[in-house]
Simulated assay, not measured.
Amino acid sequence: MYCKSGNRSGQACAIMNQLDIENAYNLIGGFSEWQGEVAHNQ
């Protein structure tokens, strides 16, 4: 999961983990910290 800063997506992953949903990952620092390529679909 990701959001702009990583806070909301981190909270969402914590909830998913509490619900025993496996493989929930958070992008640390959010999309603002992403340094990889970005594809824009229009």
Rank of each mutant, 00 (worst) to 15 (best):
A14S: 14
G30S: 14
G6Y: 01
N41T: 02
N23E: 12
R8I: 08
N7P: 01
N7Y: 02
G29T: 03
A14E: 11
Q11M: 11
G29N: 06
S9Y: 03
E33S: 13
A39F: 14
A24E: 10
I15S: 09
E33K: 14
G30L: 03
K4F: 05
E33T: 06
G10P: 00
C13D: 04
S9N: 06
C3S: 06
N26I: 02
G6N: 10
Q42V: 05
Q42C: 05
M1R: 05
A24I: 02
Y2Q: 05
S9Q: 07
I21V: 12
M1T: 08
N23D: 14
Q35Y: 01
N17M: 15
L27Y: 13
R8A: 10
S32E: 15
W34F: 15
V38D: 09
E33M: 07
E33R: 12
W34Q: 12
C13V: 15
V38P: 08
V38N: 12
I21N: 07
R8P: 04
N41P: 02
I15R: 12
G29I: 10
L19P: 03
V38H: 08
I15T: 12
A12C: 08
E37A: 14
A12I: 08
Q35W: 01
G36R: 15
Q35C: 02
S9G: 08
M1P: 03
N23Q: 10
G29D: 05
M16G: 09
G10M: 00
L27K: 07
Q18V: 10
A39E: 15
Q42L: 08
M16D: 06
Q42E: 10
I28N: 01
N23W: 08
W34H: 14
A12W: 02
C13F: 03
Y25D: 11
G10I: 00
A12Y: 03
A14M: 08
A12H: 07
Q42Y: 09
G30F: 06
Q35P: 00
K4Y: 05
H40V: 12
H40A: 13
Y2W: 09
A39P: 02
M1W: 01
M16P: 01
W34T: 11
D20C: 12
A12L: 12
Y25V: 07
V38I: 11
N26E: 05
N17D: 15
N26H: 02
R8H: 13
Q11A: 14
I21G: 04
S32C: 00
A12V: 11
Y25L: 07
G6H: 07
G6P: 03
S5C: 01
D20P: 00
I28C: 00
Q18I: 07
